[in-house]
């Protein structure tokens, strides 16, 4: 069992709440540099196929992430040079179980 899975198990047993986040992307500000995708500790993002108004590919949430839930660390929010991504901390009940913990709202599209 990987250490990450152990932690998940412990969290389940003791019903501890892990912080959860909901990711928002302001697509028209994105310049597609990929820093949020690369440095996300949970790797919840990937580059989308869509184009924004400037012709870049904004990030979007990976579908069906097994352990990949946004834990609201807000690293993407801080590292984004374009003020294009931010995270809202939400309660676990609001976003459902562990597996479907992350949610992404893409504006426009």
């Amino acid at each position: 069992m990987s250490s990450e899975a152990k932690i998940i198990k412990l969290l389940r047993d003791h019903s501890l709440a892990l912080p959860r986040g909901r990711v928002y992307v302001i697509e028209d500000r994105c310049k597609g540099c990929g820093l949020c995708i690369e440095f996300c500790p949970k790797k919840v993002l990937h580059q989308s196929e869509r184009f924004n108004a400037k012709g870049y590919h904004p990030p979007e949430l990976i579908e069906e992430p097994p352990l990949k839930v946004c834990i609201a660390c807000k690293f993407c929010e801080m590292i984004c040079p374009d003020f294009a991504i931010f995270v809202e901390e939400v309660s676990a009940e609001e976003v459902g179980g562990m597996e479907e913990g992350a949610e992404c709202t893409n504006g426009g599209g």
Binding site: R29, K31, C33, E77, P81, D82, F86, T105, G107
Partner: peptide, 29 residues
């Protein structure tokens, strides 16, 4: 997406965004 407000927007002149810096430039960070 114009309805979304970044938490730092209160300190920014949002009408000037996106800024001139290249993709991945460290200055924005």
């Amino acid at each position: 997406s114009h309805d979304l407000e970044h938490p730092m927007d209160k300190y920014l002149r949002t009408d000037r965004l996106p800024h001139v810096w290249c993709p991945g430039c460290g200055i924005g960070t």
